[in-house]
Design a binder for these strands. Structure first.
Length: 264
DNA sequence: TGAGTATGTTCAG
DNA sequence: TGAACCTACTCAT
């Protein structure tokens, strides 16, 4: 699931597997052929993530910027890699590890100023130590927009996707349709602290886990086969806490899920 | 074989 | 607000 934690994991993986060595970069599909030619054979100095954006910093300055969008995914393989299958936008080949990128929204070569411009559009990323919650609070407390929309706005907080949005609001008993300005500061502080914690768990485990053991007959949600969400994609099912039917609707073009009893 | 679905962003109107 | 775009997968026919 490409929410922020996924991109941070990818950055760590690419740093470990490709960092400090020359990387063979190509575009079997052809759509990234010009960009691949620029960085092919260069040393990958650093891989980094900010929100849902991934950056590969190559020696000499060029930066490959990747945004997975809805469908984008990397598929890893050992070197020598098999022939590309499907629409491979970018193939990276290192000494003993390679990866194929399919279906990204963005895969492009940027210079440093252009990469900075991407970052300038983003709010703080809860997975970064320097993230400052005062910025999103300032926006949220002044906004008429629903909190369910604000949390998904990458300019407010970078890295939150539909799963974290819905689950976070459930855990705090907040109706996604409540206006941002109707939150008080204590609610926001609790929201932010929990979000940081949940995203760290997602980063560490590689999956989103938000269900407390007491709401799953004592089994931790990360145990095999245990439910991992309270409301996301559970429309029509019984709320794990109160039994009320979970509702769904479209909010600014995205599916929102909530329990009308637990969330006010 | 084809329809429907998905975790996201950006642009036109 | 709605549509376009990117791709792979599941399910129904």
């Amino acid at each position: 699931m490409p929410e922020g934690h996924t991109l941070h994991r990818l950055a760590r993986l690419h740093q470990r597997k490709f960092g400090g060595q020359p990387v063979g970069v190509s575009s079997p599909q052809g759509r990234f052929a010009d960009g691949a030619a620029i960085v092919d054979g260069r040393v990958l100095r650093r891989a980094s993530a900010y929100g849902k954006h991934l950056f590969h910093h190559y020696a000499g300055g060029p930066i490959v910027h990747v945004h997975l969008g809805l469908y984008g995914a990397f598929t890893d393989a050992e070197v020598p890699m098999p022939l590309p299958v499907g629409e491979v936008r970018m193939r990276m080949v290192g000494a003993d590890f390679g990866t194929d990128l399919r279906g990204p929204t963005a895969c492009e070569v940027l210079d440093e100023a252009q990469a900075d411009a991407v970052l300038a559009r983003l709010g703080p990323d809860p997975l970064r130590r320097d993230a400052d919650p005062a910025r999103p609070w300032k926006r949220i407390t002044k906004s008429q927009r629903q909190i369910g929309s604000l949390l998904m706005d990458q300019a407010v907080i970078a890295g939150v996707g539909n799963v974290y949005r819905n689950e976070l609001l459930f855990r705090h008993g907040i109706d996604p349709y409540r206006p941002g300005k109707a939150l008080d500061e204590a609610e926001f502080d609790a929201l932010w602290t929990d979000l940081v914690e949940l995203m760290r768990v997602g980063y560490a485990r590689g999956r989103i886990h938000v269900v407390r053991p007491e709401h799953d007959r004592g089994a931790p949600s990360y145990a095999p086969g245990r439910p991992r969400t309270y409301v996301y994609r559970r429309a029509g099912d019984a709320c794990r806490v109160c039994g009320t039917t979970v509702l769904t609707a479209v909010l600014e073009g995205r599916n929102v899920f909530w329990c009308p009893t637990c969330q006010r």
